[in-house]
Design a protein around this nucleic acid. Structure first.
Lengths: 236, 236
DNA sequence: GTCTATAGCCCGATAGAC
DNA sequence: GTCTATCGGGCTATAGAC
């Protein structure tokens, strides 16, 4: 409707507002952040904000805008010929943003705001469904290849893999002592043991007696028996 | 200050308000629920609410009031002589409320509101620390008894056990298709494989070859090789 | 195109009649 | 003790000067 003199500059300013708003949303939450605060943080004046966004919700949606690396990574995983390796790469991909300072709180805020905002809810569901489909497919492939326990149901299992990744965000958001980057190896260890479950001839697992005391797998410091990709990649 | 004619009746009315408020907080969230709505839902008139609670925050704190069964269950676990069995009972205890219709959303709402409310934050931290201490102690005992992998660090591992239980709540709150009661056996399967990790002589796990195809452990429908307690116990 | 000023609305909490 | 009425404040979004 209104002609913009310089679309590139307009876009840059818009992104500047989004960055300022993201920080506020993470710290104060959506409901308690006022548009006036966003304007002040972005260095523009009150009414001017609505030339860039039609309302406050639109700003929050823009904060969660598509992560290109995520899309590319998921596409790459679909065409991999080593499903287990691809699965681990997807875990790294989805876990990486948890290390950013404000991402965990933003993710939690988005999850609760989705209950009151159908558009946001659809947005999150779409992303989640995409991730779920990729992971379930990789699990099915890996099971067929004998890389993981074929007794696991791909759909339910994929949901739990995603839930474990989500735990990195919720734990980081609620516990200041929780460092996602340091905990990623443990997450992979859990996944490794859950999915591979290479108890050789297990029907049901033998109840451990007291006779076994010898050293088992070591946790921490070392990777969980699988090569790790660097993983500490910044988002946005 | 003001004398109450009938303390018991006052308490009952107070609880009635709390129940009405809990439902609203779960559906609409704390910030978007107005005191007027709470009054209407509770069947009292506007100003009257503040004779029972000093402000809106106090109502939310009352909603999260101490669960007696939780306290008793944790105390019981401390004195158990079978740490692995006790751990499973603690998991049942903490997981049970996830099956209530509004508990998952209330829990998530509490987690985000804690960022703006030091009193609430202290409340949640206290509960969490208590659970963490009990679980870490059981893990250390179970490792000493040879029931679980002694290579696991009790503190980090306890945090992940709690994170897995929390996933029941976050998944239920965000995914309408997720049924906590149905997923509890899978959670226990994950814990079982993560903690026991009874790969017989494992230094690092052997990479599965394609030669193994036979049936392994079955998931779903049947319990994960451990007796389950009924678990569907209502809270509050 | 960007600013200032404010309209219009709703909220939490209080005051005072009954 | 419970009601009705209302206050002071803060919010989103718009209108109009520059």
């Amino acid at each position: 409707m209104v002609r913009k003199l310089d679309p590139a500059k307009h876009q840059a300013r818009r992104q500047h507002i989004v960055n300022a708003a993201a920080e506020l949303f993470a710290v104060k939450g959506f409901d308690r952040t006022t548009t006036a605060e966003i304007c002040k943080a972005a260095g523009i004046s009150a009414g001017n904000l609505f030339h860039y966004f039609s309302n406050k919700r639109a700003i929050f949606l823009a904060v969660l805008e598509e992560d290109e690396e995520r899309a590319e990574g998921l596409a790459r995983a679909r065409t991999s010929d080593d499903p287990w390796a691809a699965l681990l790469e997807v875990v790294d991909l989805l876990a990486a943003p948890a290390a950013e300072p404000s991402a965990p709180r933003l993710v939690m805020e988005a999850m609760v705001q989705a209950h009151h905002d159908p558009e946001l809810s659809a947005r999150l569901s779409r992303d989640n469904d995409e991730e779920h489909a990729v992971i379930a497919a990789l699990i099915a492939e890996a099971a067929a290849d004998g890389q993981i326990d074929p007794g696991l149901k791909p759909d339910d299992t994929a949901s739990w893999v995603l839930a474990l990744i989500a735990s990195l965000y919720t734990s980081a958001a609620t516990d200041p002592a929780f460092a996602p980057t340091e905990q990623l190896p443990t997450l992979k260890l859990i996944l490794h043991r859950f999915l591979r479950a290479d108890s050789p001839s297990a029907g049901n697992m033998p109840r451990l007696g007291v006779e076994r005391i010898g050293p088992t797998t070591r946790q921490r410091e070392d990777a969980p028996a699988e090569p790790m990709t660097p993983a500490a990649r910044p988002q946005r």
